[in-house]
């Protein structure tokens, strides 16, 4: 446990000392605050705009940071040979991968937390306040980012950052439009039922990210919005988190498998 912690802590420390990551987070905060200015132009809807802009910003930058940091997470360690000194330490290879992931999730939590605080400040300045639906929406976004981080780490165990980035963004986009994908597959069902069935099962391999970003989307046939009273409840958040946890766990298991059989040359 201490060893996992040591790897996670070091990963976190690396991110905290990276100027590039700071700049991205800073940029995100500026963007969220820009809602204050834009809000001047829309009467009565100022708070709504800030909330939507804020959530959009946290979602986009959360995923961007996860992809950006994740795709080089393991690759860089092998390429720069920093693993050479670590692996011979009394540490299982799986502990290295899990430690890296935990450190990364911790980093993302801090970064997204910072963006959330900035969003709250923006709301307060406009005379509003964060409410429970907003908290639930942010938590869901964090779940999505934790899944993407695991996917990025998996790719980074066997491929270059550039390719891993493409793959991860691909998984993100398809996962985000999982509902639409299902609809398309179901439409095919009539023409070639066999193929559609295979595709339908196959599509479960990709994460269902629609679960995590529901404001303005549909849940169980109803349109929900974080700005209206009909937003998803805590039970929904819990079940979506459980899905995210299980999915990330499976992806990490694959990452461990891939990392454990590698030659570090």
């Amino acid at each position: 446990m201490n060893r996992l912690g040591a790897i996670a802590y070091n990963t976190f420390r690396e991110a905290m000392r990276s100027k590039l990551l700071y700049s991205i987070v800073l940029f995100a905060c500026v963007l969220i605050l820009s809602g204050l200015v834009l809000g001047q132009f829309v009467l009565n809807e100022q708070l709504r705009l800030t909330r939507d802009l804020g959530l959009g910003g946290i979602s986009f930058f959360g995923v961007a940071l996860a992809v950006f940091a994740g795709v080089s997470m393991v690759y860089k360690e092998i390429e720069r040979k920093t693993v050479y000194a670590l692996i011979p330490k009394p540490l299982h290879r799986w502990q290295f991968v899990v430690g890296k992931y935990l450190g990364m999730v911790l980093t993302l939590a801090v970064q997204m937390g910072l963006m959330a605080v900035v969003l709250c400040i923006a709301l307060w300045l406009q005379g509003g306040a964060p409410d429970a639906p907003l908290c639930r929406a942010i938590l869901l976004l964090f779940g999505q980012v934790a899944v993407i981080a695991a996917v990025a780490i998996l790719f980074s165990t066997f491929s270059t950052p550039f390719l891993s980035g493409l793959f991860t963004v691909g998984v993100f986009i398809i996962g985000r439009y999982s509902n639409e994908l299902h609809a398309v597959i179901l439409a095919k069902l009539k023409e070639s039922p066999e193929l559609a069935k295979v595709l339908l099962y196959g599509s479960h391999v990709l994460p269902d990210l629609h679960l995590f970003f529901v404001s303005g989307g549909t849940v169980a046939g109803k349109t929900v919005s974080v700005n209206a009273g009909d937003y998803v409840n805590w039970t929904y958040v819990a079940s979506a988190s459980a899905y995210g946890l299980a999915y990330a766990g499976c992806v990490l298991a694959l990452a461990i498998w891939s990392f454990s059989r590698r030659d570090f040359v």
Binding site: N10, R80, K81, T82, Y84, A85
Partner: peptide
């Protein structure tokens, strides 16, 4: 204890 060839460590530490 192990010293790798031309060692490279985390340069931010």
């Amino acid at each position: 204890g192990f010293l790798p060839e031309s060692p490279y460590f985390y340069d931010y530490l």
